[in-house]
Amino acid sequence: MRLEIRDVHKRFANGAGDHIVIERMDLSVGEGEFVTLLGPSGCGKTTLLNIVAGFVRPERGTVRVGDRPVEGPGPDRGVIFQDYALFPWLTVRGNVEYPMRRTGIKTRERAERLQALLRMAHLEGKERLYPAQLSGGMKQRTAVCRALASDPQVLLMDEPFGAVDFQMRLKLQEELERIWVENRITVLMVTHDVQEAVYMSDRVIVMSPDRGRIIDDVRIDLPRPRERRSERYHEYTDLLLDRLGEAFADARAES
């Protein structure tokens, strides 16, 4: 489903007065497209994601999923949180089934879908474990399953690999990329990791801390799965690093 962000404004009041986080943000994510918001911390990328998720209300502007305007959180947008936000009192099974229960999927279909999701994420046999018993990688994959369980039209990810070590991060990126290729769902991801942005995305939006201005909108034109060592991969990485440099210059001008 298409995702349309039109003329969105968001400001936060802090000690020093009003701070404009996002001003006049326009962004479209096409059906089945993987778009990443890249920028230094404080550039409003997480705020924008939270607006799309419906957790934060913008002062002005609209977000549309397909034809429907976003008016609050809802199961049409699956969310993967930075620290996963799994329910610690539910098992893997309980967590993944939670959105299915809330959206009224029948017991029979729930069981089938649960198995299909766990198979896809290599979590078979882990149904009865609680989050505290899972490794970082398994938690992350459980969170992916849970976000996909309600069959959302858009997947929102807030630094989904932030909390795992480097080796695991590469592995999880590859796994998530494979899952995404199988499902071809519309994705909006937030990260500050250039490598991750190039590896995963169709398009990378570089944001500035100066009112969330879009510095560049880069299409990553590489076949999947991507070869991290290829020359063109490095060209994209270098290009995005340059753009991030501009964003950081904005950050210094801000402060």
């Binding site: 419906g54 199961p75 620290d83 936000a85």
Partner: peptide, 17 residues
């Protein structure tokens, strides 16, 4: 954590739920 409330809401829980 506030994320748990966000997560529940985004998975279809009502405010009262």
């Amino acid at each position: 954590p506030i994320e748990l409330f966000h997560a529940a809401r985004s998975m279809g829980a009502s405010r009262s739920g």
